[in-house]
Write a protein that binds this DNA or RNA. Sequence first.
RNA 1: GCCCCUGUAGCUCAAUGGAUAGAGCACCGGACUUCUAAUCCGUUGGUUGUGAGUUCGAGUCUCACCAGGGGCGCCA
Length: 587
Amino acid sequence: MFEREQQIIAEKIKDFCQENQLPEVDFQWKWIPFSGHWGISTSFFQLAALEARQGKKINVNARAAELAAQVAAYLGTPQGFEKVEAVNGYLNIYFLQSTYAEQVINTVLQERENFGRGVRRNERVMVEFSQPNTHKAFHVGHLRSAILGDVISRLLDFAGFSVVRANYPGDIGLHVIKWLWCYMKFHPGEKPTQDITRWMGDIYAEANRRLEENPELESEVRALYARWDRRDPEVVALWEETRQWSLNGFEEIYRQLDIHFDVYYFNSQVEHPGKEIVNELIAKGIAVDERPEGPVVVKLDELLGLKTEKYRVLVVLRSDNTALYATEDLALAKKKFTDYPDLSRSYYVVDVRQSLHFQQVFKTLELAGYEWATRCQHIPYELVILPGNVVMASREGTVVLLEDLIREATARALAVVREKNPDLSEEVKQKIAQAVGIGAIKYPMLARENTKVVTFDWQSALDFNGQAAPYIQYAYVRAGSILRKAGQPVPEEAKVCEPLTPQEVELINLISRLPAEVQRSASELRPLWIATYAYELAKAFNDFYTQCPVLQAEESVRNFRLRLTAATRQAIANSLTLLGITAPQAM
RNA sequence: GCCCCUGUAGCUCAAUGGAUAGAGCACCGGACUUCUAAUCCGUUGGUUGUGAGUUCGAGUCUCACCAGGGGCGCCA
């Protein structure tokens, strides 16, 4: 929020440097990193080091301290600031609280749910995430892509981009044929009634079990695959019907998670276009056709003249002419840019194990002359695994079903709500439990580096204490509670009661940082920073809550604190929205 | 063999190349007649895997090594 003020100071420092024939450096600005201090800060070590490198015999630390002191004297007390101080080579410039506290609160209360939103850019980006396989279970391992992709989309949107959210379900392949085989043979005519996704997953697990017990049945599966390849109407009809069951189940899950998509691309949809691209690659001399003895391959390192292995070889079509993931990804990338030619970026939120795969696909498309290929970007994330380094696999049954986790988390939240708020209606209690339970599931996936493994265990997944979503939601509820009990609307204006308490200063400081945190988090595609920020904001409010009475305070203080409380509540709400976590009205 | 990721408190994780490496959990001890205790306060806990280098300054950058995980021509 203070870019302009910062720039004015930076200009003055630049003047100082010119007047004193000092070399030019790019000053880095930070918040004063001490709790309860509110202002911006920079240091003079770089400048001093530059002087030293130019031949002056100086001690860098001492010179930095000297420069900081000189600049502090040069600046005096600039308008809008309370004081300027030089400490150990750092320059700390404190905001004038009376001016800026009210400005921050005003801005938040005026902009409301748009506080923190970046200026609209004329740029469209696509985020592909949550690529679930139909005819399989939806387990906790699938959750990370869905949650991460959703929040990255929210961040990019809030930062000012137009975002197209794309889903890419795996609706065909061996797993689907196995499922259809098992269904036709052992469950003909059955229809799922409830728990669709679990039922679908059970049949898939059953198929694998039966095939493992009786490997001779594999020939039946192969025969069915051949029928699918011929587009046998009976098989196609059954595939379409059963696929829809899965998709209906996924919709229910997405609804619970508050995740939505703008466009669906299906695996089956890009199978044939993929083969066409392969033909094109062969014609262009990029792909080598080794059929029928071998597959169609793109020898990337050879084409690029690389001496060391980097992109290796990408197989783009099997020797029996059937499509691979790579085949389809080539076509999918193209389809995205055909449908949305103005995409400035096409993101893929897919697990880290496919890093090489995506590098290969994007490089192949680049070599094929598609200029947009360089705008494709893989956003890798690490897996959610089980204790003991066990990867969740629906085939082996080593999974925690998402619906079980949601049910358990929601039930625990409900038990607490019933105890604390017995008077609320059952419907409201259920809603709160849902918000708290889902939030508790989402937060740990967001509050860590994308590239770090999440080890799922029930105990920590259901721990609602400490740095967790319920903590942030609770701060929101407390703020709302104060405002409700005030028995008056939030005052239109209130004079800042100086001096502010350290808790008030810290709170206002944090609120003012939301816009910058949004930009930082979005540009680095790191939900972690917003997740951490939301927690710090809630913590600052809880500190304020215990230290600074609002309703009991004398009128002028009360009015100011009511406005501060309202602004905090809004900032927390906006942060939670970015995290895809619902802010309940009571807890 | 080549490449990628990770290594920070007992555990799970933070930390724009910058000031005193911070949170949560767990443990121990406190605070509800008060705006909701899903909260707050306090105590304990560190050779940032090891060794060098770059830098005024390294948990952060570079190199080597160690440990764990992952990827590498017809799996998805």
